[in-house]
Design a protein around this nucleic acid. Structure first.
Length: 974
DNA sequence: CATGGCCATCCA
DNA sequence: TGGATGGC
């Protein structure tokens, strides 16, 4: 039961996994709250008093000015004087993130309306497995109900390609008989295409998802679309903000060549350092040379297997439905002189924390009908200048703040020998520098409440998941906005409706989207053939339906990737052979775990039931020549490594293929070859054991014990503050849209302003604080605390450095933008373009064709017939049409009749690319009220010029050419 | 003496 | 279970 749900390795590239990542989320939340600051540079800070507060989020305008996280507000101002610095609300003397949690949930609600397979990863990130929707959409495309128009891929990028159009062309090359020999199209290459087409179709869905998020919440996000979670996460970062990126399988090797291993989630910390050090490598591409056993022996079995697969672009971890967090807690640090040295202070803060937790627990109870059973108290004390942290778990018996605080205190006492200083009943022996309490082990409530049904076998997190799956009355009562309509659309799907009915529903939806079901465009035809390869199983769809409500459990149990014993058609055979080939030495763990737990998501799309005879024909026709190649042999390991042709096709010739070749070598081959250069970064472990600052020791508190004990903080104080400091004082700005009931917002500050004594002042621990001597900074003339002086100087240095770099970057950008015409084409693009048979059509011919018109109105038949006309009509050069060939009206080549379809599709894709290349994507500058996605297709007249929207004031919108950053640029730090 | 406050996972 | 680690 190793906690994780994994999919079967057979399906390693079958899923479409999306990571949705909110762009500088806290900033967006603050913007929405206070529209007056919209569009300005913003950084959200918490705890304003000290140096302007710590920055925890920076929006893009502010980033452009060099503001980063980890700065203080004051520093941000230096970079960007106009910056707005909204504060995290403070409640009970600590930061309160409620506002962001709620906004995050709002977003998640929208996401969840697209798939139940939603895994919230943090307050502003979520994974989605949209495989089912993709398969459904492909099916719709086959039936002409959906067309993949260029605008559906606005703001979409593909790793390894200059723009999405190139990627599409690449995909379409598979079907261009002139583009490559049939033999070069190996089966698995086709498999990869198939998988990547799913990503492409997925991208159109993700665009809709992001648009829905924007529309319903006002928030913008970016997304990564890949075949697994790790890669989706990685990919999401490549184009931001408000954009989405696909990671095609074939781009992985090249990506890895420049991808520092430490950028991969899970390897970002000490482990990553260790890996780099032990293996003497730095980039992901270098990881592939090590046998699994070696990795396991160095880094634990589990980790070794994971890394081994990751090196091949494989991550088997399933997206599991998880909406609610498994723990609710809060904590606070008390650094330096703020350390807690007295019992009363400790009690005070435990009470504060307990209050917050209790509040949130009650809300959670209300919303999710579950109860936490365990309380974990954590704290750290400074002992001999060393921070020692401990955690204790105790029973959580009641949602009662005082009780919780008392129990927590008790736990701390019990677990601390010499809790009190000698001879004292109030002063702590060791100061406490960190306090946290957290509630966990949630159990669903009241089985009687109809909730208990057996969603139990749902997943390993049965309890949490259980609570997730139950849309209870309480929830309805609370009427979560935005959920209702979606439920409506989903319920019919789930409630035992037939597939046809479901499609009716879908159709209805699409119609409302303004998508007429028209005769098929060629691109559909193109995709249709593809999708025929990506069979949609009927049973699969049913699963999708059933999982919506009651449970996916029932289906998931049998969805367990074991090949259903159904009649096998051609496709199935084809696919099975494929999976049989799936080489990667499966890590045992993966193999064993996969069966039991695989969520429906795993999309065991091998389950083929595509009844469509026509598509079958297409497939058969298509597969016939190529599937002949049954390359059982080859490939010991590495999936990606197996297909040199595939890799090469990204960049025909050229390229320092060193990395690639390395990639291609079988592990044993390469083993001897140790890493090239050892980046023996000194990296001297910054081990400056912080020079401990003398804290006030017990003797201090001993001085005034009585007073402190009596005047417990919250008893009188808080109420006084609330009453005497009404929310008027200096909230001169717009009052945050908060419930008036909560007047607490920042009582500490108000109390300060009102000259009310901070509770601290009544505490002995705080009554002896001495201001630290300061020095004046020669650069900014500010008084700087002594101990901080050096780092302050460092800061100035870093500041000037980063400003320089910022200038460089801007200049660079400017030159790129001004020399606009032919983009400074990178070698990659050239290679790809030239790889395409660009013979005649690349230039003007189709320039005046509206792609939309073209795609939606022209049926394959008409093309075919028109081609035929050309071939036989007066136009044709009657001289030399080979037998059974016809001349392509587009490129003039002679095409075998039986592959005319594919060839035409190739041209369609090519035109699509050209159209896409002419698209201008108007990016609203930092969340304005403009529509999220505005795509302007330039008309024929402006084929060479970029066109601006008529009313664009440069301030608001700036046309951004789809571009062109070297991958490596994403990994350079500023 | 200063990112702070989360949350989650993994291993022993 | 508690400690450690990782990442947002």
């Amino acid at each position: 039961m190793s906690t994780k749900t994994t999919i079967n390795i057979k399906n390693k590239f079958d899923r479409v996994v999306v990571l949705v990542d909110m762009d500088c989320f806290y900033c967006q939340v603050e913007e929405k709250l206070n529209p007056a600051i919209r569009g300005k540079p913003i950084a959200v800070v918490q705890y304003n008093p000290w140096q302007g507060g710590g920055i925890i989020a920076v929006n893009y305008p502010a980033r452009a000015e060099g503001v980063t996280r980890h700065m203080r507000g004051v520093e941000a101002k230096q970079h960007c004087p106009e910056i707005e610095l909204p504060q995290v609300p403070q409640v009970r003397g600590k930061a309160d993130l409620t506002r962001y949690r709620e906004a995050g949930k709002e977003v998640a609600d929208v996401l969840k309306s697209f798939t139940p397979l939603l895994e919230r990863a943090s307050i502003d990130e979520a994974y989605l497995d949209i495989t089912e929707r993709v398969l459904t959409r492909i099916h719709e495309m086959n039936e002409g109900k959906f067309q993949l128009r260029p605008e559906k891929l606005a703001n979409t990028f593909a790793v390894g390609y200059e723009n999405i159009g190139e990627f599409i062309t690449k995909l379409s090359n598979t079907f261009d008989p002139a583009g490559g020999t049939a033999e070069s199209n190996s089966q698995e290459r086709l498999e990869y295409k198939k998988s990547d087409i799913k990503l492409l179709v997925g991208a159109s869905i993700v665009n809709e998802i992001r648009a829905a998020v924007k529309e319903r919440t006002g928030f913008e996000c970016s997304a990564g679309i890949a075949h697994n979670k790790i890669l989706a996460k990685l990919t999401a970062g490549f184009h931001k903000p408000n954009k989405q990126t696909i990671l095609p399988i074939n781009s992985i090797p090249k990506l890895y060549e420049t991808l520092p291993l430490k950028k991969v989630k899970g390897l970002g910390g000490k482990l990553g350092d260790q890996v780099c050090e032990v293996l003497k490598i730095k980039f992901m591409s270098e990881l592939v040379q090590f046998p699994e056993s070696v990795l396991q022996q160095h880094f634990e079995q589990r980790m070794g297997s994971w890394m081994y697969l990751m090196a091949r672009g494989i991550d088997l971890e399933a997206v599991t439905a998880k909406f609610h967090s498994k723990s609710i807690g809060c904590c606070k640090r008390f650094p330096g002189k703020n350390a807690i040295t007295g019992l009363a202070t400790l009690h005070h803060w435990l009470n504060e924390l307990a209050s917050e937790v209790t509040e949130r627990l009650e809300k959670d109870l209300d919303e999710n009908n579950r109860t936490a059973k365990q309380l974990t108290v954590s704290y750290s004390q400074q002992i001999d200048n060393v921070d020692v942290s401990s955690t204790r778990s105790i029973a959580l018996v009641a949602y009662d703040a005082e009780r919780i605080a008392a129990d927590a205190l008790d736990a701390i006492k019990r677990n601390t020998e010499r809790f009190f200083a000698s001879n004292s009943t109030t002063a702590l022996h060791n100061p406490i520098k960190f306090l946290g309490i957290s509630a966990r082990k949630f159990e669903p409530n009241g089985a009687g409440k109809g909730g208990g049904i057996k969603q139990m076998f749902q997943s390993y997190t049965s309890k949490a998941a259980n609570a997730d799956e139950q849309p209870r009355e309480t929830e309805r009562r609370k009427s979560v906005s935005g959920e209702t309509p979606d439920v409506v659309t989903e319920i019919p799907k789930g409630a035992g409706t037939s597939k046809e009915e479901q499609q009716q529903i879908e159709k209805g939806n699409d119609a409302s989207n303004g998508e007429p079901s028209k005769p098929k465009g060629l691109i559909q035809h193109f995709l249709q053939r593809q999708s025929a390869l990506a069979p949609v199983s009927a049973s699969k769809s049913e699963e999708t339906g059933s999982e919506v409500k009651t449970t996916n459990a029932s289906s998931s149990s049998d969805a367990s990737n074991e090949e259903p014993s159904k009649p096998k058609g051609l496709i199935q055979h084809f696919l099975q052979r494929q999976s049989a080939l799936a080489p990667v030495s499966v890590s045992k763990s993966a193999e064993t775990e996969s069966e039991a737990k695989t969520t429906n998501a795993s999309s065991s799309s091998e389950d083929v039931n595509q009844p469509e005879s026509k598509s079958k024909k297409g497939i058969a026709q298509f597969l016939q020549p190529k599937s002949a190649i049954n390359k059982e042999s080859s490939l010991g390991s590495g999936d990606l490594s197996k297909s040199p042709s595939t890799v090469e096709s990204i960049e025909p010739a050229a390229k320092p293929k060193k990395g690639i070749e390395q990639f291609l070598k079988s592990k044993s081959d390469v083993q001897k070859e140790t890493a090239t250069e050892n980046e023996q970064e000194k990296e001297g472990n910054t081990n400056d054991e912080a020079e401990a600052v003398p804290y006030l020791d017990d003797t201090v508190e001993l001085a005034v014990p009585e007073q402190e004990e009596n005047q417990t903080p919250e008893s009188g104080m808080e109420r006084d503050v609330q009453i005497s400091a009404p929310s008027t004082i200096h909230e001169s700005e717009d009052p945050p849209e908060e419930k008036p009931s909560t007047s607490k917002a920042s009582f500490v500050e108000r109390s300060n302003a009102a000259t009310k004594p901070d509770y601290k002042e009544t505490y002995a621990e705080y009554s002896f604080q001495v201001p630290e001597p300061t020095l004046e900074c020669p650069q900014c003339k500010k008084p700087i605390p002594e101990h901080e002086f050096q780092s302050h100087q460092d800061f100035h240095f870093a500041l000037s450095l980063s400003q320089q770099q910022g200038d460089e970057f801007r200049n660079d950008l400017k030159t790129k933008l001004t020399s606009k015409s032919p983009l400074p084409a990178k070698r990659t693009s050239k290679a790809i373009v030239s790889a395409a048979p660009s013979s005649g059509s690349s230039g003007a011919p189709s320039a005046n064709l509206s792609i939309a018109r073209f795609l939606s109105k022209v049926s394959p038949e008409s093309i075919r017939s028109s081609s035929a006309e050309v071939a036989t009509g007066s136009n044709s050069k009657a001289d030399e049409v080979p037998e059974n060939h016809t001349k392509c009206s587009d490129c003039g080549k002679f095409i075998p009749l039986d592959s005319l379809d594919q060839h035409n599709d190739y041209h369609v894709a090519k035109r699509l690319q050209q159209e896409l290349n002419r698209l201008e994507v108007v990016v609203p500058s930092q969340s304005t009220s403009k529509p999220a996605l505005v795509v302007v297709a330039s008309g024929a007249s402006s084929s060479t010029k970029r066109k601006r929207p008529a009313n664009s004031s440069d301030k608001v919108t700036s046309p951004v050419k789809q571009k062109l950053k070297p991958l490596s640029s994403y990994f350079t730090k500023l």
